[in-house]
Design a protein around this nucleic acid. Structure first.
Lengths: 212, 212, 212, 212
DNA sequence: TATGAATGAGTATTCATTCAT
DNA sequence: GATGAATGAATACTCATTCAT
């Protein structure tokens, strides 16, 4: 009984793993349920015993991916104080599943509503960590004061742009690996509170001299 | 003969217009060739007399859209000196075809290779104008020195992020109309050469005092 | 153009004919759209160019059958005065399509709503003619006074019972041919105004002697 | 052992009960073996341990229903002398399982051969009682002389017509309850030996005065 | 040039039945 | 005896593309 239940769970995981892998390689639109079944080494009908519809399967893949990414990011980012470290954690988290992540952002609008919601929920975990670290650095004058949504969306937009247009920017298999650090440095320089020629931050100067 | 050729050209334009309109409304994936023919008031088969395959039609729509956008942007941006004015021209150009433009960036990865290339070519027109204006402002110390690709991609990424996730940011029909100005101001503040408490730009100061 | 339209109409008729024939032979439930296409010598997809769904095809078969039966019955029955002649016309009409008619009454409850309505509409044509003839004979005291619905439903029930249970009653291919006359005579004897030993109908006697 | 065998029998009954209930509600065609198992609270596979195929299960449901109806009718009808009482017993018997009975007559032609035979066997029990009572009343001149098969089939046809077309005749849940008495009275009036104006039956008159 | 009927290769989903545990 | 995961054949419906007229 326990054995059967374990086998069933294993099959479910196999379907999810196979589907995620095929989605990453060929995209959500191009992958068929029959293709997933064949790649997973199971019968076509069995997929529907686990996921009533193709959309349900996609939603389940998305939900699992969202949880995985969320918890991984949480593990990597929670102990980090600096915004740079948090963003590095973000890059690393995405980098571990770069292809699938890229398919999500490239085809998000075509996915079932439930899947879109799961993906958005995952983004809110990212933004939470980013805001926390950013708040401290804004306070200490390291970065400019920027509204939260613009801060996150600028970073996400930059990252997603490079990911979805990977062919324009890299021949390698990973955008994160080849360009991540450069994007991070660039982003930080954009939002940095600029220092004057004495090496003091404008913010600190302003504080020292009053609102000036 | 001339009449026939004019008639043929008119049909071709009708197909392109109708297809563009349907693509804008329902997306590239959801629109069928039969649907285009019906909406255009022509026979289904005629589409294939003008465009051998569906992919060819999509490529043609994209090419035409790219040219239209490129020339419109050129008209609006060429006389502009300031980066702000160029970016406003960009926003205006997109705003005139926001839905179709958004479909392109949301489904670009699923379009035929030729279409993707046409879209990229259009982007290079934008970047050309942006670089020209940015170069001047970098020179005058108005904006930070930023590598061209990062400058453009940050702007495009920001804009595209808001366009593709429109549901999260606006209930209205136009993201550009409701948020364009805010995005523009935000972007300019990010790349602005920050001034110190004396109101002089760090850049100019640096120039004045040497590399310090 | 006219040629094409004629060809299309011919295809539509071929589909309807083939479907009706297969339905008659194997029943509505057992016949597949692929089977119809194969039997009609056309591609599977073409069926759906003419009838959007299987239910629509069944409804069209039913509608056509109803019209055919209604007009045929009308032709045969309208000149008839006697109830016997009208019922004979009914038998003959059914007899010309006995198998399909039998499938209808045997599987009616499983057919799409539109088909059921078409079949009921056909029955009302039958009842119209039956009522007309019966009214005269009731007036003249040839048959008993019976409420219209009971009159028709008794006849239809009797006939349908023998048709749907044909295996119990005949080994031949036609219930109507082998048993129709017997059922007709039986039905008429049931509803006949019985005459007394003087050869006068009870009805006429009652009129002569008052309500007595 | 005994315990195990009792348990097995109980499961078998549970399957039959559940199947009968679902068949009554949704029809034979629409009910799946998985649906029966779920409603019965047993595993899907267990059904096939008791009934090798779905057809076997349907046959078993039919056999049991036939025996139940037959014995119930027997109990209600055996002590009855009058045809009216026997027919009332029939109506009552059907009325106790009207929905399932109606599914049987509406889908009989689609059921496995064994099931059809069981149903026919049940009908012969009904006809047996009907013939017995009718014979007496024919003898006494209360009803017309009618051949047995026509007598029964007229009654069954009438009843089944109203049951299978229930939607046309009643909005209530029971055709028997709302229309049974009316159908019974109508049927008896059809087969009644009509009396003349002296209140004597034609039959008795004929006997008294000779063949006339 | 234009038509639109016809094709045929998919594609998700269903369900009775099997079988290892 | 009982479980329920797994099978696999079947089925309605879609759509880009072709081609005779």
């Amino acid at each position: 009984m326990n054995d059967r239940s374990a086998r069933k769970a294993a099959t479910r995981v196999a379907i999810l793993d196979t589907a995620a892998s095929l989605f990453a390689d060929r995209g959500f639109i191009a992958v068929t349920t029959a293709g997933i079944a064949e790649a997973a080494g199971i019968s076509h009908g069995l997929i529907f015993a686990h996921f009533p519809t193709r959309d349900d399967l996609i939603a389940a893949v998305t939900a699992r991916f969202g949880l995985l990414m969320g918890s991984r990011l949480h593990d990597l980012a929670e102990a980090q104080e600096s915004l740079r470290a948090v963003l590095q954690a973000h890059l690393r988290t995405i980098g571990e599943h770069e292809l699938l992540y890229t398919r999500f952002i490239a085809e998000l609008g075509l996915l079932p509503a439930a899947a879109q919601e799961h993906f958005v929920a995952m983004q809110s975990v990212v933004s939470h960590h980013l805001f926390r670290a950013a708040a401290g650095e804004m306070q200490s004058g390291i970065i400019m004061p920027i509204e939260n949504d613009l801060l996150f969306n600028t970073w996400a937009g930059l990252l997603h742009y490079y990911l979805t247009n990977r062919r324009l920017f890299t021949t390698g298999s990973s955008v994160i690996a080849s360009l991540g650090e450069r994007l991070l440095t660039h982003f930080l320089s954009l939002i940095a509170q600029k220092e004057d020629h004495h090496g003091r931050s404008v913010h600190r100067l302003r504080n020292a001299y009053g609102k000036g």
